[in-house]
Amino acid sequence: MANILITGCSSGIGLETAKLLKDKGYKVYATARKKEDVLMLQELDFISYKLDVTNSVEITEVLERILKLDKALDAVFNNAGFGQPGAVEDLSTEVLKEQFETNFFGTHELTFQAMKIFRNQGYGKIIQHSSVLGLISLKFRGAYNASKYAIEGLTDTFRQELLNHNGIFISTINTGPVTSKFRENALKMFNKNINAKDSYFRNTYEQELKSRLESKEDTTPFNLPASSVAKVVLKIMKAKKPKPRYYVTIATYLLGFAKRVLSTNLLDKLLNKI
């Protein structure tokens, strides 16, 4: 029975992926940052550990537990992450660092430690959860855009360094609009870290950004359920040689194509309407 370590399983994509893989017979190590979420996962009959990807000690401890139980690790799904909304000029350096600590450095730390296991055993799969916002950029998402672009650059390099290894694979999933608690969590981060009342974009924040984040209805075009990403992870797990990149949602295909064919000026005008 193949096993997989998944980060960020408290809800949404992480939880749906854990459920699907478990139902399909995989041994899932479902992790979460908060103790209450770990308890919830354990009540769902998952092997679950507390894992904050910004804590390298916790990463080491979880990997050691897995190896003690199974002697091997087959795959890692780097899913943990969040979005920090706000105009670039309203993002302090500290806020940007906080975004990168989870989305980029946390992802890298787990990958870094897991690779030592994969090199030793001669096989393994790394699945990086990127985004359509790692391909194109949208306004007021600068911190998140930057963190996903960073994942793209590091993973593209890593993939080249693995070209001559037939047992270790790294795949990137570029997810478009998917139903999850992403907007709810993003609103919390906006309220926590952005000084909206003194911003040049104060009116835009109130009339557009916050109203969208506060909305209980997701009217985003081409939106898909979190299970759509879970199915791609399942496909990667089943594949002997997984593809280097997987797009999820029509929006990702359309915007990825636009990035390739449009001039920068035309692309900016298109994206500014979204």
Rank of each mutant, 00 (worst) to 15 (best):
R245N: 00
E64G: 14
H165G: 07
V232F: 00
Y123K: 12
I4G: 08
K188V: 11
K116V: 11
I6M: 08
L254Y: 00
E94H: 07
K68M: 11
E208T: 13
F77K: 03
E217L: 02
V88E: 08
Y200S: 09
A251V: 15
I194L: 09
L39V: 08
L266E: 15
Q42F: 10
M1E: 07
S263I: 05
K197N: 14
E94G: 03
N164E: 15
V233P: 00
K210P: 02
Q207D: 13
L96I: 09
L133W: 04
K188N: 09
G14I: 05
Q121W: 01
F182H: 12
Y205N: 14
F105M: 13
K235G: 02
L63A: 09
S48N: 11
L262I: 06
G14W: 01
L69C: 02
K188C: 05
I170S: 15
L44K: 09
K71G: 01
E109F: 01
L254T: 06
D45S: 12
T93R: 13
D268A: 12
K97Y: 00
Y144P: 02
T60P: 04
K210G: 10
L270R: 03
K125S: 03
K238T: 10
L20F: 00
L21M: 03
G86E: 00
L96R: 07
T60D: 13
T172G: 12
F82Y: 08
K50I: 10
I194Q: 14
E184N: 04
T179V: 15
V95F: 02
G153R: 12
Y29S: 06
N174T: 13
A75Q: 01
I13F: 01
A146C: 06
K210T: 14
E89C: 05
L209Q: 15
G153E: 14
I4H: 11
